[in-house]
Design a protein around this nucleic acid. Structure first.
Lengths: 180, 180
DNA sequence: ACACTCATGTAAGCTGTTACATGATTAA
DNA sequence: TTAATCATGTAACAGCTTACATGAGTGT
């Protein structure tokens, strides 16, 4: 998977795994949490749904709306669940946009508890590595205060620190719990 | 400017504003801070340089390397500085990837102090709005604990909080200082 | 002999966007 | 009447990426 990619395709599949929906429903749902990841444009969403259908990862049921345009409700198939599962197995590409991880969080309900913990731990490792690299860079060029580099490093460190804290806290909370 | 875009084009121009470089130099420089924004592929970088050249935003000087392949050193022109300036004026698109803001930070040296402060304030406003939206969403669905939504919201809030803190602190520090 | 750094570049492809088209229903 | 919501879809293009091509020098 390319570094800058977010795989809307599997995210959509993951949403359908939680509950059957139409394309429009998905857009509305994501628009409702717009500040988190933003909702995909129709220009990408509808083609994705059609592709999923062609690969038998989902099925459609056309509901002729009363006094409304007809809806196409998509439901995930067993093959779809399997594809989703193997996708979740593989780690988020390092350097992937934040969105990619937030999507994993949003899908948390649809994969088993232990798998999700593993995802968090893997993220912790990545952010940890990121943090150390930043720190090293900071020391390496400690003298040169011109250019925005130190500022950007400081910013990166601040965000990485916060994320590490959140991950540790969340992992702690989840380890105590014993849900599904 | 589209929401998901990062405008490598102007970032490159900004780097050249700090110091004349070749395409390869840029790649090396950015590879050195790889964990911050990643370095662009040759497939995007070299075409960008050529486009900048064609628009007279930069000039080239070919340095025939001794025992090495020749280098093409690009230098920003006055028109280039102006284009860069008008680009920096306009705000980062809300919902743009983190990269976009980090790039602004890296270029901090190449734009005037007051302009940079304005950029930070503008970012503060955006993240502030983001934060409030998340908080509202949190309250709105406080009851439903199934699905990953509350977790994702919590994550978003944690990161937004940290960023706000960093922005406030940095703005405070910069307001006190009186450099160029 | 093989691979890696220096240095530039092209071609093809992926992922996503905006802008548009359609058509019916409801609210200002 | 104008616009907005519901609901789906197409076409064009932007912005990147990977993979490849070239060619010399340097290290193992």
């Amino acid at each position: 998977m390319a570094a800058g990619t977010v795989s809307l395709r599997y995210f959509v599949l993951g949403l359908l795994a939680q509950e059957p929906m139409s394309g429009y429903d998905i857009k509305r749902f994501l628009k409702g949490l717009n500040w988190l990841i933003g909702s995909p444009s129709g220009g990408s969403l509808y083609p994705i749904l059609r592709a999923l259908l062609q690969e038998d990862l989902v099925t459609v049921e056309v509901i002729p709306g009363l006094d409304k345009p007809p809806k196409k409700i998509y439901t995930i198939t067993e093959a779809g669940r399997q594809a989703l599962h193997t996708w979740i197995e593989q780690p988020v590409a390092p350097g992937a946009p934040l969105k990619a991880f937030v999507m994993r969080l949003l899908l948390a309900g649809s994969h088993p508890h232990t798998r999700f913990i593993a995802n968090l731990q893997q993220r912790r490792a990545q952010v940890g590595a990121h943090y150390e690299a930043l720190e090293q860079a900071f020391e390496a060029r400690a003298v040169r205060t011109d250019s925005g580099v130190p500022l950007a490093l400081d910013y990166g460190l601040a965000l990485a620190t916060a994320e590490l804290a959140w991950l540790d806290l969340t992992l702690d909370r989840l380890s105590g719990t014993d849900s599904t």
